[in-house]
Design a protein around this nucleic acid. Structure first.
Length: 491
RNA sequence: CGGGGUGUAGCGCAGUCCGGUUAGCGCACCUGCUUUGGGAGCAGGGGGUCGAAGGUUCGAAUCCUUUCACCCCGACCA
C-alpha cells in the first residue's frame, strides 16, 4: 500500500476512493458493483444506525423483517412504482445448478425454472403492503409503524463505494394511517429525525425540503428529503421520507373500517436512509490526510499512542495512564490504545489520522517525567501539552468542540458555495464553472426543469421548507416563480 | 449499451513499438541486528501459470486472432 491519499483538489473522485479503501472502510466485492463493508466502516454504520434506531423506537416504531424475495407480479401492481424500479431489478429465474455436461464447472439446470420468477427487493413497499392487507381490518389496527434494517439490490450501471452500489444496507420504514393528516405528519416527523441525526450526530448540515414531481419516489404523492453538500460542491440526497397517500393501499387493496363503519383505503408513508450516509461523512469532513470523524460516530473517539516501541516502554506508559483511561471509560469515552510493537510511532500517527480518530493522546517518557500528556486534534491539527490531572475534563471538552467545529466548517463551506442567480446566463456560469448550490425561482413547470437539466446537468434538489418565492421570477422562463428552489449537480 | 483506457507478485508500476539467458523495480510481507517524540536504517529472504484461449516462431510478457475482466467518460439512479 502506498503512502497517503490523492489530494482532494487534484482528483476528488480518486481522493474519495483512496480514503474509503485505505482507511479500511470498504473494499470491492467480487461481483461488479458490490462492496464489502470492512469492520472499521461497519462500526461507523452501526453507530449511525443505533442513533436512528433509538429515535424510531422512541417515536413508537417497531422493527421487523420482510423477505428478500418478492413475486415479480407484485412490482407491477403500482403503475408508477414499476416504472421506477423495473429497469434495475435482479431476477431469480432458477433454483438449481448442475454439473456442466460439457466438462468442468456448473451450469443452471434448465429443469429448475421457476413457475413465477421472483425479484430481489429493490425496496419493500410491495411485499409489505401485501402483508398489511392481511393485518389491517379496522381503525383499531392503525397506525401500523414498522421499520426494517435490511439489504436491498438495485442493479446499477455505474457504482461507487457507499454512494451507489448494487447491494446496499438501509432502513426502510413503512407506516399505515387512518387519515391523510396523520400520514403527512408521520412523513414530516421522520424527516426531522433524519435531520437531527445527520446534523447533530454526523455533523453534516442539510437542507430540508420537498422533491419536485420529477424527482420524487416512484409511487409517492410527496417526497421530502434532506440534501447535503459534499466537498466537491455536489449535492447528495441523504435521506427521503415519502407520503404515499393511498397509492399502495389501492394497489394492494388495503382497506379498514372507520369508527363510523365505513370502508376506506389506508394512508401510507415510507422512508429510508442508507449506507450512503457513510459516503457523505467521508465527502463532507475528509481532508488530504484522510477521514475526519465527528466524535459522535467515531468507533474510537480517542486513540492513545504510547511513544516507544518495546513492550517495556509501552507498559510504562499504560501504567502511567491506567487510572486516567479507566476514568474516561467510566464516562463512556470510546478510547483505543494502540499498543502495537510492530509499527513505529510515526506510522501510528499517520494511520489514525487517515482513519479519522478525532483526538489523539501521545505519551512518552518526557510526559511521564512532567506528569503531562500531549493531545492532538484531528480537526485542526493542533497539538498541545496539558497536565495529566486535567486530562479527563479536557478530553470531554475537546470532543464536544470537535463535534461542533466539524459541523460549523461544513456549514460555512456550504454557505460559501451557495449562490443566488438573477439570470439564466449567470445560473449556467455558476453551475458550469463554480459548482455548488444555486437558489433561484422556478415557474413550477416540469418542462422548465427538464430543459435546465438537459442543458446544464443541474437538477432541482428540493423546494426548501423555508422557501421565499414571493417576488422571484423563474430563472429559465422569466415567468413569476411558483417556488424558490435549490439547483445543483447531484450524486 | 456507445466512446476511451488498462490487464505483468498483495498494491502501484517498468519492460511490449524493435521477440532472445534465470521477467524487473518501489511499497507491503518474512528473518536478524541497530533504531524508536511524525510514515526508520542495513543485511538477507519468500512470493509470478505476464488476464484467458488459440496461432506464428528454433524461441513469445513482447507479433497475430479470438475472448474475458476491470476502470474512466456519457444516457438511468438512495
Amino acid at each position: 500500500m502506498s503512502k497517503g491519499v490523492t489530494p482532494k483538489s487534484q482528483d476528488f473522485a480518486k481522493w474519495y476512493t483512496d480514503v474509503v479503501t485505505k482507511a479500511e472502510l470498504a473494499d470491492y466485492g467480487p461481483v461488479k458493483g458490490t462492496m464489502v463493508i470492512r469492520p472499521y466502516g461497519f462500526s461507523i454504520w452501526e453507530a449511525i444506525k443505533e442513533q436512528f434506531d433509538r429515535r424510531f423506537k422512541e417515536t413508537g416504531h417497531v422493527n421487523a423483517y420482510f423477505p428478500l424475495f418478492i413475486p415479480k407480479s407484485f412490482l407491477s401492481r403500482e403503475a408508477e412504482h414499476v416504472k421506477g424500479f423495473a429497469k434495475e431489478c435482479a431476477v431469480v429465474t432458477h433454483h438449481r445448478l448442475m454439473a456442466n455436461p460439457d466438462g468442468n464447472g456448473l451450469v443452471v439446470d434448465p429443469d429448475s425454472k421457476l413457475e413465477e420468477e421472483v425479484i430481489v427487493r429493490p425496496t419493500s413497499e410491495t411485499v409489505i403492503w401485501a402483508m398489511y392487507k392481511k393485518w389491517i381490518q379496522s381503525y383499531r389496527d392503525l397506525p401500523l409503524l414498522i421499520n426494517q434494517w435490511v439489504n436491498v439490490v438495485r442493479w446499477e450501471m455505474r457504482t461507487r463505494l457507499f454512494l451507489r452500489t448494487t447491494e446496499f444496507l438501509w432502513q426502510e420504514g413503512h407506516t399505515a394511517h387512518a387519515t391523510p393528516g396523520e400520514a403527512e405528519e408521520e412523513a414530516r416527523k421522520i424527516l426531522e429525525i433524519y435531520r437531527e441525526v445527520v446534523e447533530e450526530v454526523m455533523a453534516v448540515p442539510v437542507i430540508m425540503g420537498k422533491k419536485t414531481n420529477a424527482e420524487k419516489f416512484a409511487g409517492a404523492v410527496h417526497t421530502y428529503c434532506i440534501e447535503a453538500m459534499m466537498g466537491d460542491k455536489r449535492a447528495l440526497q441523504s435521506g427521503t421520507s415519502h407520503n404515499l397517500g393511498q397509492n399502495f393501499a389501492k394497489a394492494f387493496d388495503v382497506t379498514f373500517q372507520t369508527e363510523d363503519n365505513k370502508l376506506e383505503y389506508v394512508y401510507a408513508t415510507s422512508w429510508g436512509v442508507s449506507t450512503r450516509l457513510v459516503g457523505a461523512l467521508v465527502m463532507v469532513h475528509g481532508d488530504n490526510k484522510g477521514l475526519r470523524l465527528p466524535p459522535n460516530v467515531a468507533p474510537h473517539q480517542v486513540v492513545v499512542i504510547p511513544i516507544g516501541k518495546s513492550s517495556e516502554d509501552i507498559g510504562k506508559v499504560l501504567d502511567y495512564l491506567d487510572s486516567s483511561i479507566s476514568a474516561l471509560r467510566e464516562k463512556e469515552v470510546r478510547i483505543h490504545i494502540d499498543d502495537r510493537t510492530t509499527v513505529s510511532t510515526g506510522f501510528k500517527f499517520h494511520d489514525w489520522e487517515l482513519k479519522g480518530v478525532p483526538l489523539r493522546i501521545e505519551v512518552g517518557s518526557r510526559d511521564i517525567q512532567s506528569n503531562s500528556v500531549v493531545l492532538a486534534r484531528r480537526d485542526t491539527g493542533e497539538k498541545y501539552q496539558i497536565s495529566k490531572d486535567k486530562l479527563q475534563g479536557e478530553v470531554e471538552r475537546v470532543l464536544k468542540d470537535i463535534q461542533n467545529s466539524l459541523f460549523r466548517q461544513a456549514k460555512s463551506f456550504r454557505e460559501a458555495n451557495t449562490y443566488t442567480a438573477e439570470t439564466y446566463d449567470e445560473f449556467k456560469e455558476i453551475i458550469k464553472n463554480k459548482g455548488g448550490f444555486v437558489k433561484c425561482g422556478w415557474d413550477g413547470d416540469p418542462e422548465t426543469e427538464a430543459a435546465i437539466k438537459g442543458e446544464t446537468k443541474a437538477t432541482i434538489r428540493c423546494i426548501p421548507f423555508d422557501e421565499e418565492p414571493g417576488g422571484l421570477t423563474c430563472i429559465y422562463s422569466g415567468k413569476p416563480a411558483k417556488h424558490e428552489v435549490i439547483f445543483a449537480k447531484a450524486y
